[in-house]
Design a protein around this nucleic acid. Structure first.
Lengths: 323, 323
DNA sequence: TAAGGAAATGGAAACGGTTCCAAATATCTC
DNA sequence: GAGATATTTGGAACCGTTTCCATTTCCTTA
């Protein structure tokens, strides 16, 4: 088992100067003779440069920080997968912040200290504190889901999604509609943008809106409370999980309705009925974010980039019949 | 927007030596007077130490490498969440290797160069190459799912799981059984250990075994091939996703069977019927792995640790009636 | 063979920290 | 107030690289 060996060790063994070894490693001019000497030593000892020292000296760093608020969200994990798929040379420093602003600020500091060469933020809710911390960071930042002019960003076209779902909802001519969402302070795109079109389209309908959480169980419980008192014939949830929670509540209260969700995951086609859902391809979004970051690093554009990602409505059983 | 500032800058501004500033930062003895001088500068400029330089000098590193073969596996993601939950001071360098040995070896090199202070391997299949690469790594390594004496490890008690599921399967007195699994070379614990007890218990039964993939769609297609020719009354899949694929195939071919899976995810309770499943708490496993690593780092035990994690059978609808 | 240019090499400084050691200053005791 | 001791400080070396610059060595060519 080879010990870790440094450039100085190689230099000593080969009877040359450190600088020569470095030149050898970086393709500078070295004579054939010394090249061979160094060559054998390097491979004998399986020399690997110390990335820390390199980064310190070169001030470049093939490390990208990724801040992800939740690992239990299909969308987030899909984006991670996409990031990873598009990545060819960087390693990712991933920090999970559990949607806590304090943890997020700490994460930003940490990544700053690690001198990452870029930052990808999957957080949906950029608070003032976070914005300031990010701006103090002299490194390209790509965010997602929030239309912040200060940063490069990839946006889900939630406005359009809401319009499409709103129109579609109208076409179902519902009598009584239940909407499940989250407070807009918590996630502007999901809590506000995504439902704008829906509110608009259903302005003249009998609509009840409740706030819930991102997971199935809480959504079911919250839905249960209203569904045990009222009967709905159309339920729209801001995410698939919420919608599934409501669906379970609907089954438990023996009422029949149509269901529409947002998102893209295995869940929508394992649940019975299969869920009609407005789907975004988060995997592709992730790829896009990484490529955007890469592009920014290489070309250093003067303007902040703004990419918008469209989704599409996928009709499945849950809006064909009543469940 | 403050520029990044170094210890030397602070020293200059405060009219002291670098060493004094460093001492101030690390709680050495500094007079009240200079302490105050430095204090204001540090907070004015929001000084943050360069972690690269620190790590280079100190040869310690609050960075842990995590190698995860697949990000589209609930189990893996849950373990990640657990790691993260138990973590208090490290940042994670996460590398996704897509189950490719080559990528995994590259990842190990990369993490080695980054001088991470520990390595957590979620890969289930440690090949000889990988074992060697890991052993050349002079840093604690914690692996999962494979009983390799060379490393600290956290094991799922797949042997016991198989026994329990096997016994349970017998109690259902099936006529014709379909098992879905993967080749044992691909994942020893899942492909071999997990089904040993099942094979054993069902030795005298009419059992068909097929190999498939980890995702629902492929499992459905593979299951469809055998299920369109034969009728089964008990199906056991090595993971929940496989079992769900088979369940869908069963529905498509209008046959009724009971279904048993392995794993723990939202899926088992969103699918209809809810899936009876042998469940491991991967979130806890992740926590355990991190704590094990931490423990090893602190106490440097001479023996490789071996922790075994039990799961439990959770009965749900899919074995109550025939679907 | 001497001069000239090109190629190869070594030495030293730098990146941003920490730490050892010796020197300077402060504090205490009689 | 001198001497002894404790506290604070500055200087220098070091971690493992890269790079600049000056020097040496090597080839050409007249």
């Amino acid at each position: 088992m080879e010990k870790k060996i440094t450039i100085a060790d190689i230099a000593r063994m080969a009877n040359v100067a450190k600088s020569t070894v470095s030149r050898y490693l970086n393709g500078g001019s070295v004579s054939e003779k010394t090249r061979r000497k160094i060559d054998t030593i390097v491979s004998d000892y399986n020399y690997q440069p110390n990335a820390l020292a390199q980064n310190l000296k070169l001030k470049i760093n093939h490390t990208v920080g990724v801040i992800v608020p939740r690992l239990d969200s299909t969308a987030q994990v899909e984006m991670l997968r996409g990031l990873d798929a598009a990545n060819d040379e960087d390693t990712f420093l991933i920090v999970n912040t559990y949607q806590s602003v304090a943890r997020e600020l700490a994460a930003i500091e940490k990544l700053r200290n690690q001198h990452v060469s870029g930052l990808i933020i999957l957080t949906a809710n950029i608070t003032d504190d976070i914005r300031d911390a990010l701006k103090a960071f002299d490194v390209p930042v790509v965010i997602q889901g929030q239309d912040e002019g200060d940063f490069h960003r990839v946006l889900m076209n939630d406005r359009q999604a809401g319009d499409i779902v709103g129109q579609y909802a109208m076409s179902l001519t519902p009598k009584k509609v239940l909407l499940l969402t989250i407070p807009e302070q918590q996630d502007w795109s999901i809590g506000h943008e995504r439902f704008t079109g829906v509110y608009h389209a259903l302005a003249d309908y009998d609509v009840t809106t409740i706030h819930t959480k991102f997971n199935i169980d809480e959504a079911r419980n919250d839905a249960l409370r209203v569904m045990s008192e009222n009967t709905f014939d159309l339920v729209i949830g801001a995410t698939d999980r919420m919608t599934i929670g409501a669906l379970q509540a609907g089954i438990a209260t023996h009422q029949s309705a149509k269901y529409i969700g947002f998102g893209k995951s295995d869940l929508s086609t394992t649940v019975t009925p299969h869920l009609t859902s407005f789907e975004y391809d988060f995997y592709e979004t992730g790829k896009l974010m990484y490529n955007l970051l890469k592009n920014v690093r290489e070309n250093n554009p003067s303007e902040k980039q703004r990419l918008v990602f469209d989704g599409q409505l996928v009709e499945r059983e849950s809006t064909q019949n009543f469940y």
